[in-house]
Amino acid sequence: MEAIWLYQFRLIVIGDSTVGKSCLIRRFTEGRFAQVSDPTVGVDFFSRLVEIEPGKRIKLQIWDTAGQERFRSITRAYYRNSVGGLLLFDITNRRSFQNVHEWLEEAKAHVQPYQIVFVLVGHKCDLDTQRQVTRHEAEKLASSFGMRYIETSARDAINVEKAFTELTRDIYELVRKGEINIQEGWEGVKSGFVPNVVHSSEEVIKSDRRCLC
């Protein structure tokens, strides 16, 4: 039954307009690549289950934000309720890489008082011949922010699963260690449901599935 998962994480995907945020998410959630797509209006929503260990599933709620400047004020409202994020730039567009810093600053300013785990994603890695940002400099930037760096392609389905799953695992570890907690009035992490046993949020962490049958 689809409805069963251990936690629900809310992730936000940000980055300049046209770096391929919606395409990346659609590849991940729908398994296909849309050649042409309209620019995102405000924010869109997707979800998918991810199995991080056998039997341990996490539901990801993915918030796809508009990169366009005119929707920026809307996007800002969504940082607060996210536990993780993918910060995208286009490896063939130097400008989008330079703006990474700005995106991060904005996220930090609006996520308070909660924390948010980011992964830096260099997108469109299938277009290696048009590359304007080297892997080395992107890795360097990511490590200076204390993030992972990963290169993806929605068109060729490269590393798309990996990007989302690794971020999910990182967040799960932090939740397991108690560094990120479920909080009232915060949508970032929600506890899910395990068959036959109704857990309180704390119990979910300690106990595995118990079968009453």
Partner: peptide, 30 residues
Amino acid sequence: ELRVSSDFNAETEQKAHYGLLFDEYQGLAH
């Protein structure tokens, strides 16, 4: 969801849950 998950092994498994489907289509988020 709670009810569905506790119904998990029940014989009378119902597939149509409006609330869950509404969420699946992202109605709640919008």
